[in-house]
């Protein structure tokens, strides 16, 4: 298909792809632009001058509710979820390399965690806590709710990684006299490190932006997505877009950090000399 000159099919599909990218990024860029709306401007174009008024507005506590607090909670929850997701997914990935009793059931339970609607997870955890007489809080019930969303991604990624992992490296290490632990730390871990960074990226961004599963599980203090959702009903100024711009920037930073880490690992591997 792509072996000779570019045909009509290529140009048609390329145009379609360009439209698709525009569809993905167009709306996002309009709110990035509108977040710099002038002090008198509204929620739509035209721009009424250019200012950073709405970003300043964001940091005045009383104006938009508890932006600082919810932001801090979301970041903390994101980090907790990331670390747990990476550790638990790695362990589960290792477990799935061997046959064990109940492995199929656990695999399908993981898939179920992915397909059960978020609102049901939210309702279920909320009810379970209520029945047990425990107050829900963002660092207990919401933390668990986020894990039911991030773990399936992490486990399925690790599953794919170990499907392609050649046991020859481990056998070689063992032949050279390495213990199980040494083999894991010095052979397996460095090889799968980029994938672990990927799992961590999924863990953080999915948790940081999670809304539906947090709805009934966050307890008395909002996470950032809950705060943003609350704002959509009562805030009619571009401060909403400023918040959108800031939180999108956080997501982009996480993505960029993960990509830099992955390429740093790859570069380091290239420069390693055999001892």
């Amino acid at each position: 298909m792509a072996s000779e000159g570019r045909g009509l099919e290529f140009y048609a599909l390329a145009a379609f792809f360009a439209l698709f990218v525009l569809f993905l990024y167009g709306p996002l860029s309009t709110i990035l632009i509108l977040s710099f709306q002038g002090p008198g401007g509204g929620l739509t174009f035209p721009m009424n001058g250019v200012s950073t008024r709405w970003f300043e507005n964001l940091f005045e506590q009383q104006a938009v509710g508890d932006f600082g607090g919810s932001f801090a909670r979301s970041l903390a929850l994101g980090v907790m979820t990331t670390l747990t997701t990476v550790a638990v997914s790695l362990c589960a990935g290792l477990a799935f390399r061997r046959r064990f009793l109940g492995s199929t059931a656990l695999f399908y339970l993981t898939v179920a965690s992915l397909v059960v609607p978020s609102i049901l997870v939210s309702l279920g955890i909320g009810l379970a806590f209520q029945v047990a007489g425990v107050q829900p809080a963002w660092w207990t019930s919401a933390f668990g709710a986020h894990l039911t969303w991030t773990l399936p991604f992490g486990v399925l990624i690790m599953f794919a990684v170990f499907n392609r992992f050649s046991p020859a490296y481990e056998e070689a290490a063992r032949d050279l006299g390495a213990s199980n632990w040494q083999t894991f730390v010095h052979v397996v871990l460095p090889i799968i490190a980029p994938s672990l960074v990927g799992v961590g990226l999924f863990g953080f961004t999915l948790s940081y932006d999670e809304f539906a599963r947090t709805l009934m599980t966050a307890g008395s203090f909002n996470t950032l997505p809950l705060e943003i959702y609350g704002m959509t009903t009562n805030v009619t100024t571009p401060v909403l877009y400023a918040l959108g711009a800031v939180t999108t920037l956080v997501s982009f930073t996480a993505i960029a950090a993960a990509l830099v880490a992955m390429s740093a690992i790859a570069r380091r591997r290239k420069t390693l000399k055999p001892v």
């Binding site: 638990v88 492995s103 339970l109 993981t110 965690s113 955890i125 039911t148």
Partner: peptide, 20 residues
């Protein structure tokens, strides 16, 4: 493998099966 799978099973048990 049981020890390695335990954290995943416990978390999904507590925050998915039990709530359902």
């Amino acid at each position: 493998p049981y020890l390695q799978a335990a954290p995943l099973a416990l978390i999904l048990g507590a925050f998915l099966l039990l709530p359902l």
